[in-house]
Design a protein around this nucleic acid. Structure first.
Length: 552
RNA sequence: GCGCCCGUAGCUCAGCCGGAUAGAGCGUCGGACUUCUAAUCCGAGGGUCGGGGGUUCGAAUCCCUCCGGGCGCGCCA
């Protein structure tokens, strides 16, 4: 990458300056490059002179000395001292053209990196309770998690997308009882409505479906049997609904991991034994406590209740052990911010079990609150109040929905107003970006009709001298750094930003430079610039899971 | 009370591993369609980056503190 090349040049200059006695180098500091916000500050800038001149008061002199000692390079056009002592690099046209050619070649690895090659990542996200259809909260998680996975893959990681299915425990039981209520009622048997039962209409509909498909065969079972049977059928149906919603949303999971399985195959019992073997468990008041407070948690946690049943914490321990046993190097959990209280205990478990905190990353997606107009709704499946992801998709489409979720950082709370989302759907910035793509596609169709070449290797890019052409080329080539930064920061919104800026820069080019002209050479060069731009827009949108239409 | 997150333009938010004159979209106002897609473009207006202190050559960004908002603090999941 270009910044590596630049770093080498600067490092050589640093050593040169040191051996000339211009400055003292106790240790070679890390050399950082940034892309200046202002165009006249060049393509890349480094503050290294400010860093090494700390305390001398003469950073500009140091910068000048470094510039004089920079080895010659055909990628650098000019370097100048600026401001308090920055070194601003302007890169050569030859370099710029090489990168544009690479971007224009569809088979090239432009925008791909290899930092993650050989590292297996488990990224768990959504993991919504299978006790009802997905709502927009899960939509945000799905969009963000999937985009993160795509980013990680773009930089070389092997990513497994995983959905943890909470198909055990109390919520499932309440859900099953809620279904049972409607089911039995339909068969003329009245039972009491379960405490905290699930209120949504879908529960009655589900019971209806089950009654239609299975008849009355659950009615005469024992309570336990019936509950188990209904739970199995109901969860299965909800889960397949969730799965198809996610597929429709463009989010495919590699692994659907069942919590129930952890119980069934003794994993939880073994996990507790593992903790016991490490002397991390103590008996208190008939329960088994994991001494998580020794590992940074604010208190110890019960893993097995006094009645002998394991807690959710025990499942978490068993689950993380299972992930590690499956050979993952990195474990990423994407959780709702309302679960942040459980992060310390998971990290405590990771440390106590010798997994290591650095292998585990818990990312918290801030709360999604729902509103409709002025009214604030509480998004809870149990209360039966929510905005379905399916409805959102139907109203605004997959692209606009995903894009909206991916414009903000996961740290920003999201107040989701379904009415507003519908109303604003037509002015969603995603269409701006897609429009640029469609427009380029249209130009290239015409170019093809007119027999204008789009061969990247032979295109005379030296003809691209207009400021808008220069801006577009320089914007394009930053994509490589943007992808790497976005992946490292797990920040898909940076891609969203970038594609908007790129589309905007393209629009300026489109305004100023007619692509298809009388001049075949110039048309060729501009067409190749269009090809490169289209490729990067499509690639960026693909990282977001958003489509790139040829026509709009 | 303790912990985590947030506070940036009228609104919704980027920017936050310190960097040069703080950005975008929407909204408002004023312009531009016989020319490759006007789902577009150009221009204007709009800011004590919550307040205060500190570190630094340099702070929206790091530290402390206060204020405001959200969330969480179960042998629930």
């Amino acid at each position: 990458m270009i910044v590596d090349t630049l770093s080498q040049l600067v490092r050589a200059a640093l050593h040169g300056a040191a051996s000339d006695g211009v400055l003292r180098l106790d240790d070679v500091p890390g050399i950082d490059f940034e892309r200046p916000k202002r165009k006249d500050h060049g393509d890349f800038a480094t503050n290294i002179a400010l860093v090494v001149a700390r305390g001398t008061g003469k950073p500009r002199d140091v910068a000048q000395a470094l510039i004089e000692r920079l080895p010659a390079s055909d990628v650098v056009d000019a370097v100048e001292v600026a401001g308090p002592g920055f070194m601003n690099f302007r890169l050569s046209a030859a370099w710029l053209h090489d990168v544009v050619r690479r971007a224009a070649q569809h088979s090239s690895d432009f925008g791909r990196h290899s930092v993650g090659v050989g590292t297996k990542v488990n990224l768990e996200f959504v993991s919504a309770n299978p006790t009802g259809p997905l709502n927009v909260v899960s939509g945000r998680h799905a969009a963000v998690g999937d985009a993160m996975a795509r980013l990680l893959e773009a930089v070389g990681y092997g990513v497994t997308r995983e959905f943890y299915v909470n198909d055990a425990g109390r919520q499932v039981e309440i859900f099953a009882r809620s279904v049972e209520f409607h089911y039995l009622k339909r068969h003329g048997v009245d039972v009491a409505w379960p405490e905290d039962g699930y209120r949504g209409d879908y529960v009655a509909e589900l019971a209806e479906t089950i009654a239609r498909e299975s008849g009355d065969r659950f009615v005469d079972m024992s309570d336990d049997e019936r509950l188990q049977a209904l739970a199995a059928v109901a969860l299965d149906k909800e889960l397949s609904g969730i799965r198809s919603t996610l597929e429709r949303f463009g989010t495919h999971f590699d692994v659907w991991f069942s919590e129930r399985q952890l119980h069934a195959n003794n994993s939880i019992k073994q996990a507790v034994e593992t903790l016991e073997a490490k002397d991390l468990i103590e008996q208190r008041e008939g329960a088994k406590w994991f001494r998580s407070s020794e590992f940074g948690d604010d208190k110890d946690r019960v893993v097995v209740r006094s009645n002998g049943t394991p807690t959710y914490t025990a499942s978490d321990v068993a689950y993380i052990l299972d992930k590690v046993a499956r050979g993952f190097d990195q474990l990423i959990y994407l959780w709702g911010a309302d679960h942040h209280g459980t992060v310390p205990r998971l990290m405590a478990a990771a440390e106590a079990l010798g997994i290591g905190r650095e292998r585990v990353k818990v990312l918290l997606v801030q709360i999604v609150s729902l509103s409709s107009g002025a009214e604030t709704l509480k998004g809870s499946k149990r209360a039966g109040v929510y905005v379905l992801l399916d409805d959102l998709i139907a109203e605004v489409g997959v692209d606009a929905a995903r894009y909206t979720f991916l414009t903000r950082s996961i740290d920003a709370p999201l107040d989701f107003d379904i009415a507003l989302a519908k109303e604003q759907a037509p002015e969603n910035p995603v269409f701006y970006v897609q429009y640029a793509h469609a427009r380029i596609s249209s130009i290239l169709r015409r170019a093809d009709e007119q027999g204008i070449g789009v061969d990247a290797a032979s295109a005379p890019l030296g003809l691209l001298t207009h400021p808008s052409e220069d801006d577009l080329m320089r914007k394009l080539v930053t994509y490589e750094e943007v992808v790497l930064e976005a992946a490292e920061a797990l920040a898909p919104q940076r891609i969203t930003r970038f594609v908007e800026e790129l589309a905007s820069t393209f629009s300026a080019f489109y305004r100023d430079c007619q692509v298809l002209t009388e001049d075949a050479e110039l048309s060729h060069a501009r067409a190749v610039l269009c090809v490169a731009t289209r490729r990067v827009i499509a690639d960026g949108l693909a990282l977001l899971g958003v489509s790139s239409p040829e026509r709009m």
